[in-house]
């Protein structure tokens, strides 16, 4: 495989961005990232983005946002109706072909105009499940209940995950839930989607993330310490909840193995865990031990921007690698009910 690295990123997340359209808040991020490595859009070999029409409430919503790249003259470009992490995957594939050396990736959404947990119900099987409108919290609560009853986790453990995420998020200027909270206080919260408490559930945000990938010497030229992608893979589980063991993740385990998570020591991990229960399942599936710092950014529990949160995990991990905060990190993205789909990316310093 060709050596490809994350060389720059930028993100913005807020509880709600009311006074700017998607393209209006994405343009400064795109510009900032390109300028930080001295590239213009015309220097970039491939551009790929991730967004969702259902979240935007508008068909072909991505068509408005492409203007932000400055696609005049035309650019080589693609779009996935997935989290930006999969757009990064598509760009990484493109770079593997050796015809281009750089790629710009972005993912974004404003979920605040709608009711995200209800919008996500339209992801379910349209014939058997969606007519019941099970919202996203309720579906995760089914999984949480199974985990608790199987004795895999207890409330204490979930509250510890939530409390630690909040402590980390308090240090992250991009997080939107930045107040620390003790395990005891979290355990005292009234359940929201029983057995899940408010602190078990991610903090929805509007925003986006932009990343630049570069290959080989081009990456070394543009960055002092590129965060090299040593492995990247993604997998899906079955959709039908009844055929899955919701207390574990087969797809995350396979993706983790293929990406080589276990090949060497992991310093820290940025996991797309929209619920404390998802974090538990992911650390098990990826075999991350107690010595691994989980979600130093606070993760999705600190700020959850749909369609960008997975890409933000990669950006956060890469930035820490580039800063020298660690040498080897795992970044993860997920999608679908009870994280049906999972992407794992292993990043390393030089």
């Amino acid at each position: 495989m060709r050596d490809v690295a994350v060389i720059a990123s930028a993100q913005r997340q807020e509880r709600s961005i009311d006074n700017e359209s998607e393209v209006e808040f994405m343009v400064p991020l795109m510009q900032q990232v390109k300028e930080s490595v001295g590239l213009t859009q015309q220097d970039i070999g491939f551009t790929c983005s991730g967004s969702s029409d259902f979240i935007a409430g508008q068909a072909f919503s991505f068509v408005m946002t492409i203007d932000g790249t400055g696609p005049v003259p035309p650019i080589s470009e693609s779009h996935v109706e997935m989290d930006g992490a999969w757009a990064l995957y598509e760009a990484w594939v493109k770079l593997q072909m050796g015809e281009v050396d750089t790629a710009l990736i972005y993912g974004y959404s404003k979920s605040s105009p709608g009711s995200l947990r209800d919008v996500l119900a339209t992801q379910m099987d349209p014939y058997y499940v969606a007519p019941l409108w099970p919202d996203a919290f309720a579906i995760e609560a089914l999984a949480a209940r199974q985990m608790l009853e199987a004795g895999k986790v207890d409330h204490q453990r979930l509250a510890e995950i939530a409390s630690r995420a909040r402590t980390h998020a308090a240090t992250n200027p991009h997080a939107v839930r930045r107040t620390e909270k003790s395990v005891e206080d979290i355990m005292g919260e009234a359940p929201m989607a029983d057995p899940l408490r408010p602190s078990d559930i991610s903090a929805a945000a509007d925003g986006g993330c932009v990343v630049i990938l570069a290959a080989g010497d081009r990456a070394r030229e543009l960055s002092d310490r590129p965060a090299w992608i040593r492995g990247i893979d993604h997998r899906t589980d079955a959709h039908t909840l009844g055929v899955r063991d919701l207390t574990q993740s087969m797809s995350a385990r396979i993706a983790g193995e293929k990406a080589g998570v276990g090949d060497d020591k992991v310093d820290f991990a940025e996991l797309y865990a929209p619920f404390t229960t998802s974090e538990y399942v992911l650390t098990e599936a990826l075999g991350l031990g107690d010595d691994v710092v989980i979600n130093p950014s606070g993760g999705a529990l600190g700020a959850h921007t749909m369609m960008a949160s997975g890409l933000i995990r990669i950006a956060e991990a890469a930035e820490r690698i580039s800063r020298g905060d660690g040498d080897r990190a795992v970044a993860h993205a997920g999608s679908g009910p009870v994280l049906q789909q999972n992407l794992v990316c292993v990043l390393e310093g030089e």
Partner: peptide, 12 residues
């Protein structure tokens, strides 16, 4: 079709 990201439902 009124289904968000239908590939998720179509996995099987």
């Amino acid at each position: 079709e009124g289904v968000m990201m239908p590939e998720i439902y179509l996995a099987e």
